[in-house]
Simulated assay, not measured.
Amino acid sequence: MKIAIISVSEKGKELAICIKEKLDNDSTIIKTDLYHKNVKKYFPLLFNEYDAIIAIMASGILIRSIASLIESKATDPAVLNIDDNGNFVISTLSGHLGGANKLTNKIAKLISATPVITTSTDVNNKLGIDVIAKDLFLSVNDTKEILFFNKAILEGRELSLTVNSNKNFNYLFDYLTKNTLEIDVSIKFSSKIKTDEIHVTLDDHILILKERKIVAGIGCRRGKECEKIYHGLKKSIDELNIDISRINMLTSAEIKKDEQGILELSEKLNIPVEFVTLDKLKLFQSNDITKSEFVKSKFGIWGVCEPSALIMAGFESKLIYKKTSYDGVTISIAISK
């Protein structure tokens, strides 16, 4: 998640700096940028460039600033509102698909504030269908149908989830079993459903949840054992709260194509591994990757795990876990659009 924090007062600016310092240590936060004052100029620029905006200001200023920018729950960024004293963190926009509710709880915990969340499913201790999509990194084919299904969940009606009978969907079953929020679902199996889709149906309504491609980029010192690489990968996905079975591909640079630890890990997990050519890595550009002068001087590329993951996840993919080191192993994770 890329986050912009914008403040209007000096006290708010101090709080913004404090929040940034805490978020910089979180591998699931790709970057945090600070902006101060001049909200009329900044908000239109930030709205489409960041996954989340944290506005430290009066709610009236925030609402007037973003009103004309709001388009859709499928595309709008998460927006949080915090008072200057850091007493309350309010989930203001894109609570579910945008991740504002979860970010609200995260920020509130970091600064010892009270989280304020008003979405109906959350306050009624129900699991929204859009929360399932967000948590499991699934796209939604028709966001207009979310309201119907969430209303049905609030009314205690049973939803039918249909998945392909030839695909392992343990990550979905485990998620539903372990989730403490209430939802009534039945699971059906059909070979006619695409293997990367989950069909949610009730009455004559249907919602298709489709797996977004998740790619784990790996860098490591020469000769790193499979178990050491697995340890780094497991720590990373645990921080993202995703099951190992949701990883669609492992990847690294072609200079690692003979690395036994990576090859063994691919075989052990039954996840394909692809190695990106140096030519592609040299041409790749992104403001989100961590640049290594050492790697640049040795191989002519700025990095291994982050650019490899982004390239293999496809056009307009983004990082959901920045380059993090685990005893000679670096892991990053990217997701398709």
Rank of each mutant, 00 (worst) to 15 (best):
M1C: 12
M1S: 10
K2G: 10
K2N: 15
S7H: 07
S9C: 09
E10N: 14
K13N: 14
K13M: 13
E14D: 13
L15C: 01
A16H: 06
E21A: 08
N25Y: 09
D26Q: 07
L34A: 06
H36A: 08
F47Y: 15
D51R: 09
A52M: 12
A55Y: 10
A55C: 15
A58P: 00
S59A: 07
L62F: 08
L62P: 00
S65H: 11
K73F: 01
P77T: 15
A78M: 00
L80Q: 08
N81A: 12
G86L: 04
V89F: 07
V89W: 02
L97R: 06
A100R: 03
A100F: 02
L103H: 05
T104E: 01
K106F: 01
I107P: 04
A108L: 04
A108F: 08
A108Q: 05
L110F: 04
A113L: 02
A113E: 01
I117N: 02
T119D: 09
D122T: 08
V123D: 07
V123Y: 08
V123N: 13
V123A: 07
N124L: 11
K126Y: 02
L127V: 03
I129N: 11
I129C: 02
I129R: 03
I132L: 03
I132G: 13
A133Q: 05
K134G: 00
D135F: 01
D135L: 00
L138Y: 02
I146K: 06
L147W: 03
F149A: 11
N150V: 02
L154D: 05
R157F: 10
F169T: 10
Y171E: 03
D174I: 07
Y175W: 03
L176K: 14
I187T: 14
I187H: 13
S190Q: 07
S191G: 14
E197S: 12
T201M: 09
T201R: 14
L202A: 09
D203G: 04
D204S: 15
H205G: 08
L207M: 15
L209R: 14
E211C: 13
K213Q: 05
K213G: 08
I214Q: 00
I214K: 10
C220W: 02
G223K: 09
K224D: 03
E225V: 04
K228C: 11
K228S: 15
I229M: 04
S236L: 01
D238H: 11
E239A: 06
N241E: 10
D243A: 02
I247N: 03
M249G: 06
S252R: 08
I255H: 09
I255W: 03
D258Q: 12
E259G: 09
E259P: 03
Q260R: 11
Q260A: 13
E264Q: 14
L265V: 11
E267D: 14
L269D: 05
I271M: 13
V273G: 11
E274H: 13
E274A: 10
V276S: 09
V276R: 11
L278E: 14
L278F: 06
N287W: 00
N287E: 15
T290A: 06
T290R: 08
S292R: 10
E293F: 11
F294I: 13
K296I: 12
K296Y: 14
G300Q: 09
G303V: 12
M312Q: 15
E316G: 03
S317R: 09
S317Q: 07
K318W: 00
I320A: 04
K322W: 02
T324F: 00
T324K: 06
S325F: 04
V329T: 13
I335E: 04
